[in-house]
Structures are given as structure tokens and as C-alpha cells.
Design a protein around this nucleic acid. Structure first.
Lengths: 129, 129
DNA sequence: ATAATATATGAACGTTTGAACATATAATCA
DNA sequence: TGATTATATGTTCAAACGTTCATATATTAT
């Protein structure tokens, strides 16, 4: 059964077949993992993270975000598009101005967890090195 | 004060100066945001996420991970290096074999939060589209 | 209507990234 | 000792990514 799954790309031997079997059964589904990587990929960019951390505080329009982050309106607009397609932000239009805000409670929780990790890690680094 | 910060790259006007000021004060530090993006960048790859979700279950050696994920030993080894440099996994050597495991409790929490989001999102998508 | 402004979007470009391949290191075994 | 095996690492290459520039759309103001 594990044999069915095995393939051409792997160039080495199973050393602990029992472990592999057990882990394979417990591991979350492929699709979930792919979606998860996609989600984190979106957070894995300084511009986008900065946009999000700004939106944590308040809804903002494109120009204000661009000004705040000292970046081109176009660059911000492109990134907002990415965030919107991923359903991480939503927008509302008021005349010419488009306001963006967070679309989801989870987002803040994920990022907060990340910040906790980063802070702990920096503490450790400061002590050790 | 906001003027000092403003720069050449931004090509548009502040529309709501009060909002920008307020958000700027509250936003987390630059360094934190950079570190955070770096952290998420690491999670933003299918191979690495798969490695991590395997290690959630049990410590594993390089060959077993390669076999489980049906990838080259080299590819896995390279990614484990990335994960180790980021202090996300640690390893112990036993003869020729090197076992990898999670280095940090936070990691699981971050990824679990991510999974919650992904699942919620997929539910929504299934209903709407 | 025309001009000005806010935002969106397409194309181009340089950079980054992940996998493949070859090879090096280190440990075991014959 | 030499062969084998597990892992690490340097290099190369194609694909993905983010920004810039030019331009399109849409809304307001004159």
C-alpha cells in the first residue's frame, strides 16, 4: 500500500517503514497542505504583511497605505489584489476612494501567533549570541 | 514628523492624514514585520509544510521524509537546512542517520491557526461557488 | 465636456527560489 | 582498507515573484 504511493522521484530507501506508515496515516490531507502553503506564501512578503498590520488598526484607502508604507500606488494596488483574491481583505468603494479592511478574524490570530514566535526567537537569539 | 518618513517612492497623496498618523503609531516595528514575513515565507512552501506536518507526528530521518513525500533526498535535505537555520526544526545524529524534529511549540500553534483558516475558507467556497 | 484624481491592470524586467544533478563528507560494514 | 550508505552542499536552470512603467477605467469637479 505504501508501495502504490512510492514513486520515481524518491532516490533513497525507507529506513523505518513503521514510522513512515504511521505518519502517513496521521498527516493532514494533501489539499489542505497545499492551501495552507498558499496562505502562508501570501503572508511571506514584507509589503503584504505591512499592509495587513496596518489594516489591523483601521480600514484604509490605497493612497494612504501607499503613503504610509512609502511605496508606489501601483505596487500597493497589486498586492491588495493578491490579498483580496485570497479573501484576506475586502473593500468598499466611496466615490473615487476604495477602502480596504480585513475580511477575516482568523488572519489576525495567525499573524499574532507568528509575532509571538518571532519575539520569543529574538529573545533567545539575544541571549545566546 | 510624518514628512520625515515620507519619501520618493510614494507617488500619491495622503487622503486621510489623521488615519495614517494613528495607524503609524500603533503599527508594530519594522524589524518585527520583516522577521514575521521571513517566518511565513518559510511556511509558504508545500514541501516545507509537508515536512513540518510530518514532524508533528514524530521525529523522522531524512530518507524517510524523502520517501514519504516522494522527493529527492537532496531536495529534502536542502529544505531541512532552511528549516533548521530558521530554528524551526532541530536534529540529532545516530550513526549515519540524522533525525529531525520540531524545535518549537509555537510552530504547531501557528500552523494549526492556518489550518483553521483554510478549512473555514474552503467551507465558504463550497457553499458560495 | 474637459480636467483632475483614485484606483486597477497589463507588460516588462530583474531577482529570488526550489529542484535536479553531481559531488563531498561522514559513518558503518565487509 | 575499501565499499556502501546516509546526509550535506555547491552549481545550474527554469519558474515564480514583486516592482516599475505605461496606460486604462471610473468618479468627481470645473
Amino acid at each position: 500500500m505504501i508501495k502504490d504511493f512510492e514513486a520515481e522521484r524518491c532516490d533513497c530507501n525507507v529506513l523505518h517503514e513503521d514510522v513512515v506508515k504511521k505518519v502517513k496515516l496521521k498527516m493532514p490531507q494533501y489539499t489542505d497542505m497545499n492551501d495552507l502553503a498558499e496562505l502562508f506564501k501570501i503572508f511571506g512578503d514584507t509589503t503584504r504583511i505591512n499592509i495587513l498590520s496596518a489594516l489591523f488598526e483601521e480600514e484604509m484607502c490605497v493612497c494612504d497605505i501607499a503613503y504610509l508604507l512609502n511605496m508606489t500606488q501601483s505596487a500597493i494596488s497589486h498586492q491588495l489584489r493578491v490579498l483580496k483574491q485570497a479573501r484576506i481583505v475586502k473593500n468598499r468603494k466611496d466615490g473615487k476612494v476604495v477602502f480596504y479592511s480585513l475580511d477575516d478574524e482568523h488572519v489576525k490570530r495567525i499573524i499574532d501567533q507568528g509575532l509571538i514566535h518571532v519575539n520569543e526567537n529574538n529573545k533567545g537569539r539575544a541571549l545566546n549570541e
